[in-house]
Nucleic acid binder design. Structure first.
Length: 466
RNA sequence: GGCGGGAUAGCCAAGUGGUAAGGCAGAGGUCUGCAAAACCUCUAUUCGCGGGUUCGAUUCCCGCUCCCGCCUCCA
């Protein structure tokens, strides 16, 4: 079965075919963070959706060349560095580092390239593109010295968002716009310097200033991936105007279609409400880690609902993730024990494997895919209980799990058992041999207090991390 | 006002023109010294509401209600 994605541009489920004539490599651009603060879990929902996309494409044999930009100059970063009394680069570096740490915590596979907007290479590229646009009449410098895109030169503007520009209701934001633009919708490509920018400034053919936000993605995408790419992702809130602007700039510069498939993930809600600082339900990844949740638990919650559906993030769902993950852990543990004597890596349960991957082929239907996984867990646990699962079966299931986990990244990380806990286990074994149940239970409590859970099985005591 | 996305058990959620996957939570049971884990059984006569098409609709059509998002630099 072919991979199919819902393309925002056409609103159709489309069979995925990469540009690459060999059908091997995929060009993927994903809008990254603005590094003025720690990213919040809503941001990470988008990055996890993109991670699932990338990993599934890889599982299907594609090589993914993925770019994720870092916006390290804009109004917020400038305001932030001024408030912190730091140079812009120093201020944003802190949040870039934090962002990469967070991605690691959430087991997000790094992009091939993480270009920064302020990299001189890309500043130069942006200026080059803007110059081209001005030269060909797609852009103009207004009296305020900023350079704007001339919207009426690009009739396709609005097609991605399916908006009719004539019917746009004026909102408060644009009525404040006092600039000398030809048309109210014209957006800035180059923003002329003003006092509020302080020392954040670059030279350009239009005088001192800084790039607009939209041109950044166009410059990086075309510079790193070429004029046309396979997939461009982001949150739904980027559809308009950001991605519309990207299309306009890029296509007017290159003369090519910019993106074949647009994919956008829906917003995250927290406890049924829009996440906002004023509502007190605003969480960065770090806030949740401080509350004792792990990266993979958060990954599970953020990944377990289809990307196109609004996701209601709750603490109940985090608790559910913990239970579901430990169910997976127990299963992997049992399979590993059972497979110990079997080293032959062949013999995949093909039908099951295919059902999992086919579910993801269908516009990343993660719920159906997880359904397949849990069905198999139940079936093989039952077989294990009945002593009907051979070591070869167990090995085959583990091989399958490794493929599944390459996409999901749900496996528990190995942790060394501390010496003190090992000693307690030994002491408990002695107590149990003597049928001293009171002592056995007391030691079990001590092990629990040390952060480990001990279970008694036919093969003896088993330890797992709490 | 325009455009778009939703409404399935206590919660999350899949899905199909033929009678409702899966996860979490809950109840009972098997196993266990007790636990834990695992397994078994149970938990939506029903898929927002009202019509229509059909032998049959949660799934198709029409109308309605409610929720959410976007509408010019928020993933």
């Amino acid at each position: 079965m072919a991979i199919r994605f819902l393309n925002t541009y056409t609103r159709q489920l489309e069979e995925f075919r990469p540009l690459d004539p060999a059908g091997k490599s995929v060009k993927l651009y994903t809008c990254g963070p603005t590094v003025y603060n720690y990213a919040h879990i809503g941001n990470f929902r988008a990055y996890l959706f993109e991670d699932l996309l990338q990993r599934h494409l890889q599982a299907r044999g594609y090589e993914v060349n993925r770019v994720m930009n870092l916006t390290d100059v804009d109004d917020k970063t400038i305001r932030g560095c001024q408030a912190a009394g730091l140079p812009l680069a120093e201020f944003t570096q802190k949040f870039k580092d934090a962002f990469f740490e967070d991605l690691k915590t959430l087991r997000v596979q790094p992009a091939t390239t993480f270009p920064s907007a302020t990299d001189p290479v890309y500043i130069a590229r942006m200026i080059e593109m803007i110059a081209h646009l001005v030269e060909h009449g797609y852009a103009y410098q207004a009296e305020d010295k900023s350079v704007y895109f001339r919207l009426n030169k690009f009739p396709n503007y609005g097609k991605l968002a399916h908006l009719n520009l004539d019917e746009l209701r004026p909102s408060g934001r644009i009525s404040n716009d006092e600039y000398e633009k030809e048309s109210i919708g014209d957006f800035a490509l180059w923003k002329a310097w003003d006092a509020a920018d302080g020392d954040v400034v670059w030279d350009s053919p239009w005088g001192k200033g800084r790039p607009g936000w939209h041109i950044e993605c166009s410059a990086m995408s075309t510079a790193l991936l070429g004029p046309e790419i396979d997939i461009h992702c982001g949150g739904v809130d980027n559809i308009f105007p950001h991605h519309e602007a990207e299309i306009a700039q890029s296509e007017c510069c290159t003369g090519h279609r910019f993106v074949r498939v647009w994919m956008h993930c829906a917003h995250l809600m927290v406890e049924g409400q829009k996440m906002s600082k004023s509502a007190g339900n605003f969480y960065t990844l770090r806030n949740l880690l401080d509350k004792g949740y792990t990266g993979r638990e958060i990954r599970y919650v953020l990944l377990s609902v289809n990307y196109r559906l609004p996701l209601n993030f709750t603490f109940e769902s985090l608790a559910g993730a913990r239970s579901a993950l430990s169910r997976i852990d127990e299963w992997v543990e049992r399979l590993t024990t059972q497979a110990a004597s079997e080293t032959n890596a062949s013999g995949h349960p093909l039908a099951a494997q295919m059902r999992f991957e086919e579910a993801l082929d269908d516009d990343l239907n993660i719920s159906a895919a997880l359904g397949v996984l849990f069905d198999i867990i139940r079936e093989s646990n039952r077989a294990l209980d009945q002593n009907a699962l051979t070591p070869a079966d167990a090995r085959a299931l583990l091989n399958w799990w490794n493929r599944v986990n390459a996409v999901l990244q749900f496996q528990r990380e190995e942790t060394a058992i501390p010496q003190t806990v090992l000693e307690l286990v030994e002491a408990r074994a002695a107590a149990r041999a003597a049928k001293n149940w009171a002592a056995s239970d007391e030691i079990r409590a001590q092990i629990d207090a040390a952060g480990w859970v001990v279970k008694d099985s036919k093969e003896g005591q088993k330890l797992t991390r709490k």
